[in-house]
Design a binder for these strands. Structure first.
Lengths: 337, 337
DNA sequence: TTTATTTACTTAACCGATTAAGTAACACGG
DNA sequence: CCGTGTTACTTAATCGGTTAAGTAAATAAA
């Protein structure tokens, strides 16, 4: 059995394809009676319109893209959840692209979007994404783009972020209140604006508490788990941190692993705070004090603002800047309070 | 600046659109010199072909769909990872659909696939998906479909699963070896074949060890976290289980939560095994004994077999049945060994 | 030399839906 | 009775590639 097309419906009903098309889109040009007949036959034959024919003609795909570094991270997983909930409600389709923290892959993916494959893009950039991200600046001019979490500050575009500097400041202050004097910030990237803002909050907190910022205070980690693990172990042995802030979920578990391997007690030897959305954080040994980002809400917010732009081209998308607060959830990997 | 089309290239080079099209696809009908000129202009003008025009004509979308219950679960997240790695390598695009365990949503999603939107489907069905899943049987006839993990046994189709019955048998035997005599199996669904196969392994293990199977041995949980939580607490208080097998990741954390609230010690009062891929399982308090599924590999295998079918229509996709073993990782939430 | 074949194109139909423009039939006001 | 609208359609162009079929020129084979 062939695929049912509008033309087949037209022939069966002795009508033109135009009439069928209009009837199915409930046009006022078509009589009620004809609409009924068309609809009846369409359901009888199980007609499903070809989305690509429609996309080609209407120049809109009813599809959005989500571009993220990885999916096996509870932040991104929950963010997708939030995005998908909005997309499903609006009847849009969601394409997923994983960059695996590779700027090259990211660029290739973004270039493809110039084809009109998607009506809009939600993106959280890679740790490698450089300041002069030319592809991004270009893309933003062509189709609606919303950055979430990992934004690119050099590009003027809609953004949904958390209060990174604040969060890092509070986390740092919390460690200091717990007695830490030699705190290390584990950063995922030198380029990432969220990393830099977190570092900024960290520095500010140290300064406000008259603690020195040394060149071992901020530790730049790798995307390679094995490398990061080695780096961490070496750093922990050499620098004798009494507090660590892991700015990504993967880094938080890496810290637990390294401490276990070095027989360092948490929080006895090192107090730990992780930027993480792990639902199991409270069941960890010890339970992990976290900076929890509202991942679902951020995805939801980013998608919502994107759809506003898709609905109305006059919507000032690029001016949209939402900051959704994250919260410090104090557990047993830190001592204060 | 308008979008660059093949026609624009044709006009600039005083060639027909056919020549451009063939040159870009490296057809033997076109001279090397012309190919060079076309390619040069294409890159100069940053030509990106319209995928929908091509899809419409070629009746292939270079897109696959992944249909899963949820994404905020490390099994599914890692499976997506595996799928995406194959798709990216093959230059395919990946559409994600979340059913949120709703059979209705699943059906609506599947129906859309009759439109030719995707060339193939990878699916893990919902807990509600009934035996007579008519939509599925239909879909399998129309386009290549591969079930992974949560298969639909009534439908003849390619499958990538783990050895569920074995895994459950081993988990049960492990608990029995640790002294458990009143084990509860927390199941996510009555319909799901993986649930039933796990239950089967569970029953067999009980039988082989002369332990009774009572009507409280298998506890069917809800998709609602709140409901499940209440159900669990009630059951734990009434039935005095000394061992629990949580057959999903969410259920595993629910058990930890319930035990905490009821002040039940793990493994002192209740020993716990979870079907889970949580990277933090080893850091939980106590560390969780898990049945770990090779999620990435399963996604990878499912995608690989799907692409074989997409490449060659004579490939006997429906006969493909892969069972990838899961492993019991013994930690401190159980006593044996 | 003539015919066959190859090379390097062009022409035009096509995929399936959408939509601007056109038309026939009928109603209605003046 | 004429002109103006309205209703309910149809015709045909269009979106941007792809491809079967055709062609003119060059080359090879007979």
């Amino acid at each position: 059995m062939e695929n049912v097309t509008i033309r087949m419906l037209a022939e069966r009903l002795q009508l033109s394809t135009a009439t069928i098309s209009k009837a199915l889109s409930n046009s006022h040009e078509i009589s009620e009676e004809t609409k009924q007949r068309v609809l009846a036959l369409a359901t009888e034959l199980n007609y499903v319109p070809n989305p690509y024919a429609s996309s080609l003609r209407k120049k809109s795909s009813h599809t959005i893209a989500v571009v993220i570094p990885e999916v096996a991270d509870s932040f991104f997983a929950e963010a997708i959840n939030g995005i998908e909930s909005v997309a499903q409600e609006k009847g849009y389709h969601v394409l997923i692209y994983l960059t695996h923290e590779s700027f090259g892959k990211e660029q290739a993916i973004l270039k493809d979007f110039q084809s009109g494959r998607v009506d809009g893009v939600l993106i959280s950039v890679t740790t490698e994404t450089a300041a002069a991200a030319h592809g991004l600046a270009q893309l933003v001019k062509e189709i609606p783009v919303v950055f979430f979490d990992r934004v690119c500050e050099e590009v003027t575009a809609a953004r949904v972020t958390t209060d990174d500097a604040n969060a890092a400041y509070n986390a740092t202050a919390h460690l200091i209140a717990g007695g830490c004097r030699n705190i290390g910030l584990l950063s995922a990237s030198r380029h990432l604006s969220i990393s830099n803002r977190r570092a900024e909050g960290f520095r500010q907190a140290l300064a406000d508490h008259q603690l020195p910022l040394t060149d071992t205070s901020i530790l730049y980690c790798s995307n390679e788990p094995a490398e990061t693990r080695q780096l961490l172990k070496t750093a922990l042995q050499q620098n004798h941190y009494d507090g660590l802030i892991a700015t990504t979920e993967k880094l938080a578990t890496a810290v637990y692993l390294a401490c276990e391997e070095l027989s360092l007690a948490i929080p006895g030897d090192v107090q730990v705070i992780g930027f993480s959305n792990l639902s199991t954080a409270r069941f960890l040994q010890p339970s992990l004090t976290t900076v929890s980002q509202p991942a679902f809400d951020m995805g939801h917010a980013a998608a919502t603002v994107l759809f506003k732009a898709l609905k109305s081209s006059s919507f000032p998308l690029q001016e949209q800047q939402q900051v959704i607060p994250s919260s410090l959830i104090i557990r047993n990997s830190t001592k204060a309070l």
